[in-house]
Design a protein around this nucleic acid. Structure first.
Lengths: 185, 185
DNA sequence: GTCTATATGTTGATAGAC
DNA sequence: GTCTATCAACATATAGAC
């Protein structure tokens, strides 16, 4: 038997995708086991409960989102960083229209949960809010927190509309609006 | 036995509240039966399936939302109507922060559903989009649809942030921003 | 029309052989 | 570490007495 196995990674990857596409509550451990090629009973060797697996998914999404923000920081120009983030959303508009924003979706659903998962998911949106606020602060804006809140409100609302009406261009149109807004600051 | 009964109405009311607070998938027919004081087995006399009940809830939300928009039309001034709608959101900011936007929540969740419920829920957001577009059209704006989309994106995103961080003032702050924006048009 | 009892399926989770 | 078999709880939905 191998000392290391990629089963845990495969489980988290499958869960991340399925939670995004179908939602947390609507995804069974059986679905995740099948998608990742791990027998159902073996899932519990890696995760004691479904919530445990969800925590791992949220952690992985944190890492993933952190990587996205790092990619947007290459220029050390805060205004350019924000525009780069909006471009990233536009690039992924097809996915957003089809399945919604993975971060917004998790927060929306887990906010209704009474477990500790709710707070963990909140950290995802908080990470985004902090990064966005930092960019505005580096633009010498005293109202950085307010501006960041406005930007995130718009992008997440745009994702909901795009997903609901299945129209990717809504993400693009709203992103363009926010890019003009940022340029005008 | 009474020819008419309020059981059906009580079931829809209870389902509407529970779907909002806990979500559709996380609410069982047993929960709804208990909350409305109707025995579980009797639910199926009024609704053949859970999806049937969900359809009734969506229809009721359509009526409810229609009533809200009518209340905002009292002045026959389109700009005032839009400001009135934003004031309505601010008034309900505590509920939005606690349970999220009932319309946005339903759309978000049912968008991931493969049944016909998804399309029905979309009509809710579409009703809001149409009304908002009409107001901008009456303001002689050629880009009415675009402006309406921007307004709804912002309010729904603000609801998500307020719900996630449990901060009602986010709804208020963003609504004020959009009121200023509308005044400036 | 109303309600109790129950069928039927799926879920998260466990036991224990290998 | 891995996997099969299975449990117990809960879900939607039905049967049938009243």
């Amino acid at each position: 038997m191998p000392r290391t196995s990629d089963k845990r990674e495969r489980l988290v990857d499958a869960a991340m995708t399925l939670f995004h596409h179908r939602g947390f509550a609507q995804t069974s451990l059986s679905d995740i086991a099948a998608q990742s090629g791990v027998p159902l009973g073996n899932v519990y060797y890696y995760f004691k409960t479904k919530d445990d697996l969800a925590n791992a998914v949220i952690h992985e999404r944190m890492q993933h989102q952190h990587g996205i923000f790092q990619l947007c920081e290459q220029k050390d120009d805060p205004k350019g960083n924000l525009l780069c983030f909006l471009d990233f959303l536009v690039e992924h508009r097809a996915d957003i229209a089809k399945y919604g924003c993975p971060v917004g979706g998790l927060c929306q659903e887990l906010n209704k949960d009474e477990s500790q998962l709710s707070d963990k998911a909140d950290e995802l949106l908080n990470q985004a809010l902090k990064w966005t606020t930092l960019q505005f602060e580096q633009m010498q804006r005293k109202d950085a927190a307010e501006l960041a809140q406005h930007l995130l409100a718009n992008t997440h609302g745009a994702s909901l509309l795009a997903n609901t009406f299945n129209e990717p261009q809504i993400v693009k149109q709203e992103a363009e609006k926010m890019k003009d807004w940022i340029e005008s600051l």
